[in-house]
Write a protein that binds this DNA or RNA. Structure first.
Lengths: 341, 341
DNA sequence: CGATCGAGTGTAAACGTATACGCTGCTAGC
DNA sequence: GCTAGCAGCGTATACGTTTACACTCGATCG
């Protein structure tokens, strides 16, 4: 049962290797009789095609790569679930690369992209400037790329993408807090390098401005999209001279950290401080209190992104490049109340 | 900038393709002078080696596959993090396949394994009988396999593995509940097909027996390792004629579901019912109450597993096959109290 | 100074597959 | 009955790389 090649099968079946190949890939081009002979030989030898050789010959691997900030974030695992489902249906495997919350160096990302062996790339994370440069080069070499979740940066604007309207969603979240009577609203956003959370910050600021509410210095703090990062950021917020009555977090992971930090400080949510998250990960509803948050159709995003990538891979270019906006929804639970004062 | 091969570079540098190849892979076997010429040519042409051809020629892809039950489970993402770190250090990419909590059919798993293009496999999930059969075949064809987290099934006993002592850990968790005065202790375990949770169930039963406590019919219920599954299982538990005062869950995900279900029913944890989880995922401590649970060194398991796989890949076989047991720890938080009665 | 050695390079074969092309032999149309 | 056509199959080439082997040429040693 050592590695057996197509030659072995051909010899055993008494045909040429071309015929064996045809039996596998174009069964209709071969006589019933020979097909059976070959199938027998395949069974006997335990032959299975050498995928490496196939990939090499055909010039495609049936592997796609997805680049994301953090595999640990339940939101992204939900997106991945959608991607994976579509990939399976289309016969692709998926290779995951993590930018580790943008701490990855530009060199590493570049090396990763250059040395890849994939038919296409799904980008769920914003890239360093160097990364986008490499990507553009790649794209010119006709490596299909599709962007998900993120609003695209200008350099990548000609790639297809699918995501929610982050600005509108952030506005909606902020407006909800305002509608509940909050005026001192702060935000825990992501790293400055993350375009996605930039958009959310933009939406927050727009809503505040529209309501003619001021944002004090120190009210918008930078987290790193993790629980720990949010706890630290929240600590700063709690010590602020003019403490906010509500906090809008750029993702649920941080909302959870925020919530926990506030409770650790002996305050109550939402009585003392209200919290709104973003993503509606599955832990949001089992928190105490359950988190009010913006829900994204994560799996659907993943699916759509993968299908678009497939179209890109197959069509070569025919596929449109327009961004595809999927709907979001504010889901109201119990982490927001009217402010005490 | 269209695809440029090694020939192009050779022509431009005025050397043979062999020399170019050597410049890349064995720079010390080539004169300084020619090396510079070649490097120049590479720069000018924008050449980068065709990874497919390399893989094909060398017979290795530098890709490893990891099979796990659920990418969404934070415990596994933590293990993955360790794997990924080691993989990066060793120059491997990692391909993830999900058994989707064992709902995946045997055929799918088999097809996946047969058609793979990987240098090795890390198994974090127990496999269907058919799967293990395919695996054994694979292994005979010298595809390196290492098992993590799971206790190995008999058929796979000759593969290296690294995991905690699940039986001892489950015993410890159960004994802790007993030491707090609980006598009516039930368990929410995983699917029957999961060896891992079988071990935990075994540990639980052993501890109960040792303490001479009986386990009533209906006290050990089957979840599916998800929040939703645990909620359903817990509902059954709550309706039991002789309701337990404590519940031991086979993983934290289910402990969270359990906790949420109990709270939804209007009871309090730990006042009315105590809960112990397993894994110590990062959400365990931000629950209300924070979860008492068994902590596993997830990242470390991932790292070790990956390094062992590397040794297998490189050494061929020299590497030992003995299981590697890593330490666990009971971390006591606030989800357990003495029973009311 | 001639033989020996070895470093540096080139030539060519090999990896396993897919397929363009050509050959055979049969069928159908005239 | 002869030819055109075509289905079925084999031959041979190509994909891009690595590497065993052969070769050259300068240096070193006897």
């Amino acid at each position: 049962m050592t590695d057996v090649s197509i030659k072995e099968v051909a010899r055993l079946a008494g045909v040429s290797i071309a015929t064996v190949s045809r039996c596998i890939n174009n069964p209709e081009k071969v006589t019933e009789k020979t097909r059976l002979k070959v199938q027998d030989a395949i069974r006997q030898t335990g032959y299975s095609p050498n995928t490496l050789a196939q990939s090499f010959r055909r010039g495609r691997t049936n592997i796609v790569m997805v680049v994301l900030p953090s595999v640990g974030d339940p939101f992204f695992t939900a997106v991945m679930s959608g991607i994976r489902g579509a990939a399976r249906a289309k016969g692709y495997s998926v290779l995951i690369e993590e930018t580790q919350l943008n701490k990855m160096t530009a060199d590493e990302i570049g090396a990763m992209l250059v040395s890849n062996q994939t038919d296409g790339i799904i980008l769920l994370a914003s890239m360093s400037p160097f990364g986008t440069e490499v990507l553009s080069a790649k794209s010119k070499r006709r490596l299909p790329i599709v962007i998900g979740c993120e609003t695209v940066s200008p350099e990548l604007a000609d790639f297809p993408s699918v995501h929610i309207d982050n600005i509108a969603a952030a506005k909606e979240a902020t407006n909800y807090l305002i509608s509940q009577g909050h005026q001192r609203i702060s935000m825990v956003c992501g790293q400055a390098s993350s375009l996605l959370t930039k958009d959310r910050e933009y939406g927050y600021r727009a809503a505040m401005k529209q309501a003619e509410l001021s944002i004090e210095d120190g009210w918008v703090v930078e987290g790193d999209l993790t629980i720990a990062g949010a706890r630290k950021a929240t600590r700063n917020l709690m010590n602020h001279g003019n403490r906010p009555t509500a906090i809008f977090c750029a993702n649920d992971e941080m909302a959870i950290g925020c919530l926990h930090e506030i409770k650790s400080a002996g305050l109550q949510v939402p009585r003392d401080i209200s919290i709104v998250g973003f993503d509606d990960i599955r832990y949001a509803e089992v928190m105490d209190p359950p988190l009010t948050t913006i829900s994204q159709p994560a799996e659907e995003i993943g699916e759509r992104v993968m299908y678009r990538l497939c179209r890109r891979i197959e069509a070569g270019k025919g596929a449109s490049s327009s961004p595809e906006i999927v709907p979001h929804k504010l889901v109201i639970r119990q982490s927001v109340a009217k402010p005490a004062s």
